[in-house]
């Protein structure tokens, strides 16, 4: 079957849409996670998602909404809680992580459910996306895009230096906690695509590349988006062509792209800076 023929089937169209949204838009939250050092927290949120879907299964509603709701609650607690109690986010994340995992297993035990069913959120599959998965993906992507466009300057200031942001009149903590929340939701929906173990291919790898290439938040975001799109869409096409497993192919594509970017950085970085310079000069001349 030729590649194009695949896309006459709704399953593959949905997969392509998922790749475009996650690679192009959801990858942006990786910038927040890398710049604010939230890698432990993202891991904790993934475990909280498991607890959420466990509860959802027991109450028999859709696991994805359960997972997202749990992530929202978790993110909303983790940031402010560690602010108030002055414990660092790493510690509170570890607490949440083991705690929610244990609680999930306990619930399964009490309800007599097979634990593997809840692990479905952990082992996502782009070719088995439900309507709910696509809806949640579209909603979260739209929220990310709208926030980035409307509050780009506030986000930039808080990412650059949250105390400076505060003295300039921004409610840094609020912005930070909102970013945490959105990042958590983005991770939650991305997990449905490639599974928890490979979600970093969508969330972290593109941002790591984009931050190396960009000379400002805008250019870094554009590069991140581009790298994300390349990994997911190219990964999808390659996996269809060779009939390889999708999640793995996307991840490997992401790794290769990041390696190329890192190696090429020295040469490219100068180029990007030079162009930016021209842009500023032009503005000055006007």
């Amino acid at each position: 079957m030729s590649i194009l023929a695949y896309f006459s089937y709704p399953v593959f169209v949905r997969a392509l849409v998922a790749c475009l949204l996650s690679g192009g838009i959801l990858s942006l939250v990786g910038i927040v996670i890398v710049v604010l050092n939230l890698t432990t927290m993202r891991f904790a949120l993934m475990h909280i998602a498991l607890l959420g879907s466990a509860i959802a299964l027991i109450l028999s509603f859709s696991p994805i909404w359960g997972a997202l709701l749990a992530i929202a609650c978790g993110a909303w607690f983790l940031g402010p809680l560690s602010d108030k109690l002055k414990i660092d986010t790493g510690l509170s994340s570890a607490l949440f992580m083991t705690g929610s995992l244990a609680l999930a297993f306990f619930l399964f035990y009490q309800a007599g459910l097979p634990a593997m069913e809840a692990f479905d959120v952990f082992s996502g599959n782009i070719l088995a996306l439900s309507k709910e998965d696509i809806y949640s993906l579209v909603i979260v992507s739209a929220v990310v895009l709208i926030l980035v466009v409307c509050f780009y300057r506030e986000i930039q200031l808080v990412l650059y230096n949250s105390e400076l942001a505060e003295t300039l009149g921004i409610q840094s903590k609020l912005v930070r906690n909102l970013m945490l929340l959105i990042s958590g939701l983005a991770i939650g929906v991305s997990m449905r695509l490639v599974g928890a173990l490979l979600v970093d291919a969508i969330i972290l790898l593109p941002a790591l590349g984009g931050l190396q290439l960009g000379s400002s938040l805008v250019t870094a975001a554009l590069c991140t988006s581009l790298i994300g799109l390349t990994s997911t869409v190219l990964g999808l096409l390659v996996s269809l062509y060779f009939n390889w497993p999708l999640g793995v192919t996307i991840t490997l594509t992401g790794v290769i792209v990041l390696l190329v970017v890192t190696l090429a950085k020295r040469f490219i970085k100068k180029g990007v800076f030079a162009k930016e310079g021209l842009a500023v000069k032009k503005e000055v001349d006007r």
């Binding site: 710049v35 930039q156 990412l159 000379s215």
Partner: peptide, 12 residues
């Protein structure tokens, strides 16, 4: 400010 922190965000 007293601290001259340089974050991880690329900025000119």
């Amino acid at each position: 400010p007293q601290e001259r922190i340089i974050g991880k965000l690329p900025i000119t």
